[in-house]
């Protein structure tokens, strides 16, 4: 008797499928997922998990939380991060401390794998959501992430 139950199940599952697509059809006006990109350039916001490029957030005192531990540099599989660092005397404690001079990031070599961000112990670098990364000259793809004159936030330890 599986012949008739096959027919019944076949028709029922087909109707279930048509119900799903029919629901999509009726809601397509409001729920269209198409982004008409160059038109909505001003309002288009990429979603939070989008991987645009690596940035280093600075607070209002021009302070970041990069301690120069170089874990991101080691984690990067294709060497797109270079950290130029120096040992300087910390004015507060009077001890020598490892401080970054430049955190160099080559966007042209980056594959957006995110291993550097996973490796960072002090959350100094994170993903930005911008996606218009095309430039006219390759040298513009090499970026210094820490701003000039910035220093590490007090209390952030290696």
């Amino acid at each position: 008797m599986s012949y008739f139950s096959d027919i019944y199940h076949g028709i029922r599952t087909l109707l279930t499928g048509m119900g799903v697509t029919g629901k999509y059809f009726l809601h397509s006006r409001k729920g269209a997922i198409t982004q008409q990109y160059p038109d909505n350039r001003d309002t288009l916001k990429m979603f939070e998990r989008f991987r645009g490029e690596v940035v280093m957030p600075h607070d209002e005192n021009n302070e970041h939380s990069c301690t120069g531990c170089q874990k991101c540099e080691i984690a990067c599989p294709n060497g797109s991060i270079e950290i130029i660092w120096d040992r300087q005397v910390d004015p507060e404690t009077g001890k020598k401390k490892k401080l970054i001079d430049k955190h160099i990031y080559h966007l042209g070599m980056c594959t957006q794998c995110g291993l550097c961000i996973d490796a960072c112990p002090s959350d100094a670098i994170k993903w930005a959501q911008n996606f218009e990364n095309a430039v006219y000259d390759r040298s513009q793809l090499t970026r210094v992430l820490n701003r000039p004159g910035s220093k590490v936030r007090a209390g952030v330890e290696e």
Binding site: Y24, H27, S28, A32, Q36
Partner: peptide, 10 residues
């Protein structure tokens, strides 16, 4: 058009 609406496109 119908195909687009079924797939939540425009």
């Amino acid at each position: 058009k119908v195909a687009a609406w079924f797939q939540l496109r425009i």
